[in-house]
Structures are given as structure tokens and as C-alpha cells.
């Protein structure tokens, strides 16, 4: 029994020693941990954030920023273990990239009051929790204008993941954008029930196309499957989300709403340096450059100049606050 007690004490001392070392290095450089629901190469949600964090690291210097990434933690329970581990290893900013991580952060953040945590899409920020919040309905509205003007069949298909968070905002904004220029167009919303089932997304896109849709859009990492399905049918266009996805289908992806995660991460790093370790609700919008509409240059001539002008004008109206997009409560 004595031996056991002794070894427990020894381990505790060793652990304290290690954590002491951890905080020492932390004061010299900022350590960012990223917990992702999918993978760094998903060509959408997770890859966008990864590139943002890497860009911050590049700008501030590799020796100033340390980055650790954990992938495939879509299940919040698994993610909680990773978040807790990063926190106890002395990471300064832990980004759990998904709305599903809100409740686990609420719990863990109390145990590590000096660590900054961040999650999104969300808006509830506390003492040491940042919430980032892409206004995906804004870019979606602009893409809706493009879709409404370009559709020939008057049927537009949405390949949705699960009706939650970002997907709702995107779909609502998109539908309103379509209706603003083409009230007769039929926007058909369907969900696969998954974020990552690319085969199902592919099949749903095929069904949308067979049922008459000629322009499709959608959110989440599974959309790559839908994009490929669109690429196999001539005359079908895809409007992307999260990041520029034209690399997989250069003749199909017209535009994309791309999130500028670099600014968000940089903002959080700055807040921390100023002594503010959380409590901020960080919005990504057209106004602050957090959202951009990227046009695939190869297909730039597909969108007529007057449509592009309307998109630009609407963008100005949204930024100026002249146009607000109604979201469901």
C-alpha cells in the first residue's frame, strides 16, 4: 500500500513538473490546437479552418505559433477528450471547429480558466470562450441571385447535410436570394442526414438533377460527392460553400462562398495578447471581409455582366444594412 501511495505521489510530482515546463514554453509562443469534425483535406469546412490557422502561423512566424490538429472528432464525446488533453498540455487557444462542441466547451472551460476556447457556428461566448459566427446567409443570398437568374428549368436543388446551424442559415439565405430575382423558381431542399456521406450526397444530387434541377448548391464536407455527380452531367452548375471547390470540377463549380478563417483566428490571438481570453462573439460577414464570393475564373463568362452587377449592388446593400436577411428564430 505504501508503495502505491509513493508512486502516486511521484507521478503527481512528475506531472506538475511537466505542466510547469509546459507553461514556460507557452509564454514564449502561442500554442493553438484545432479539433476538427472531419479531416484537414476535406475541401470544405475543416480544410478552410486549417488553412486559416496555417496562414496565421505563417504570418506571425513558425517559431511564434505552434499548431496541433486532431481530426475525425465529429462526435462531441470523443472531441471532449482531445480538448481536455490539449488544455492540460498548456495550449493557449483551443478551437473546436463545429457548433456541436458548444456544450463540451462550456463544461471544460471552467476547469481551465486561463485557456482560451473557441467554437462555431455559434454566438454564445463566455469568460474564456470565443464564439465565431459566419453569416453564411449573406453569401448564400448572393449565390441565390446567381442561381435564380441562371436557371433554365426554374428548378434549383439543395443537397443539405443535417438541418442545423450553418446549413439552415445558408439554405434560408439562398432561398430568399433566389426569390428576390425569380419568384417562380422552385428551390428544393433535401438532406442526406449526414455531414460526411459523399456517396449519399452524390445520389441525392443525381436525384435532384433527374427531377429537373439544373443548378445545385449545398453545405458540409460531403458536397464533394454532389459536385462530382453534377460534373458528370453537362449543363449543370454547382454553387459552393466553405471554400473555393473548383479544383475538383473546374467546368461545374461557378462560384463559392469562402470563409476567411485567417482573420478570425488572428483576431482571437490578438484578443489574447491584449489580455482578453474569451467572451467575444466574432462575426464573419461580407462587411468585415469574413465572407467572400469567389468566382471560378474559368466560368466567369457564364454569369452575365448584369447579374454580376446586381450581385455587387446587393452585396453593397447588405453591407450598408439596407437589406437584411430574415432568419428563422
Amino acid at each position: 500500500m505504501k508503495k502505491v501511495a509513493l508512486s502516486v505521489v511521484l507521478i503527481m510530482v512528475l506531472a506538475m513538473l511537466l505542466s510547469a515546463c509546459g507553461t514556460q514554453t507557452a509564454s514564449q509562443k502561442i500554442k493553438i490546437a484545432l479539433v476538427l469534425p472531419s479531416t484537414v483535406d476535406d475541401l470544405s469546412w475543416s480544410q478552410g479552418m486549417t488553412e486559416g490557422v496555417k496562414a496565421v502561423q505563417k504570418e506571425l512566424g513558425e517559431d511564434k505559433v505552434e499548431v496541433a490538429i486532431s481530426e475525425r472528432l465529429g462526435n462531441p464525446t470523443d472531441a471532449a477528450a482531445a480538448v481536455r488533453q490539449y488544455a492540460s498540455q498548456g495550449y493557449d487557444l483551443i478551437i473546436a471547429h463545429g457548433s456541436q462542441y458548444q456544450s463540451i466547451l462550456d463544461e471544460i472551460a471552467k476547469e481551465f480558466p486561463k485557456t482560451s476556447f473557441a467554437y462555431g457556428t455559434g454566438y454564445q461566448a463566455h469568460d474564456n470562450i470565443f464564439a465565431y459566427d459566419p453569416q453564411s446567409q449573406e453569401g448564400a443570398y448572393l449565390q441565390g441571385i446567381i442561381a435564380g437568374k441562371l436557371t433554365k428549368s426554374n428548378i434549383i436543388g439543395i443537397v443539405g447535410p443535417i438541418e442545423a446551424g450553418d446549413a439552415i442559415k445558408y439554405n434560408v439565405g439562398f432561398q430568399q436570394g433566389v426569390k428576390s430575382v425569380n419568384p417562380n423558381a422552385d428551390v428544393r431542399v433535401a438532406y442526406t442526414g449526414s455531414f460526411g456521406d459523399i456517396a449519399k450526397a452524390s445520389e441525392l444530387a443525381k436525384a435532384q438533377i433527374d427531377a429537373g434541377a439544373d443548378i445545385l448548391t449545398g453545405t458540409a464536407q460531403q458536397t464533394v460527392g454532389a459536385i462530382k455527380a453534377c460534373a458528370e452531367k453537362p449543363g449543370i452548375y454547382w454553387l459552393g460553400n466553405d471554400m473555393d471547390q473548383s479544383s475538383i470540377a473546374p467546368d461545374t463549380v461557378l462560384t463559392a462562398q469562402a470563409y476567411n478563417w485567417k482573420d478570425v483566428v488572428m483576431q482571437m490571438v490578438k484578443f489574447r495578447q491584449e489580455g482578453k481570453i474569451g467572451g467575444e462573439h466574432l462575426v464573419l460577414s461580407l462587411g468585415n471581409g469574413g465572407i467572400q464570393i469567389v468566382v471560378n475564373q474559368k466560368l466567369a463568362n457564364v454569369i452575365p455582366a448584369d447579374v454580376m452587377a446586381l450581385v455587387e449592388q446587393t452585396k453593397k446593400d447588405i453591407i450598408a444594412g439596407k437589406l437584411t436577411i430574415e432568419l428563422p428564430k
Binding site: D42, G196, D197, I198, A199, Q221, Q222, G225, K228
Partner: peptide, 18 residues
């Protein structure tokens, strides 16, 4: 079949519980 005859691409967790 999922990668060569259906989606013609590979992404993480393509089988998705099938």
C-alpha cells in the same frame, strides 16, 4: 464500387457505415 463505380472519388469515411 463506391469509389470506382459510384462517386468516382475518395474521401474520408466513404463507406459511412454501409
Amino acid at each position: 464500387f463506391l469509389t470506382l463505380g459510384h462517386t468516382n472519388m475518395y474521401a474520408d469515411n466513404i463507406s459511412a457505415g454501409r
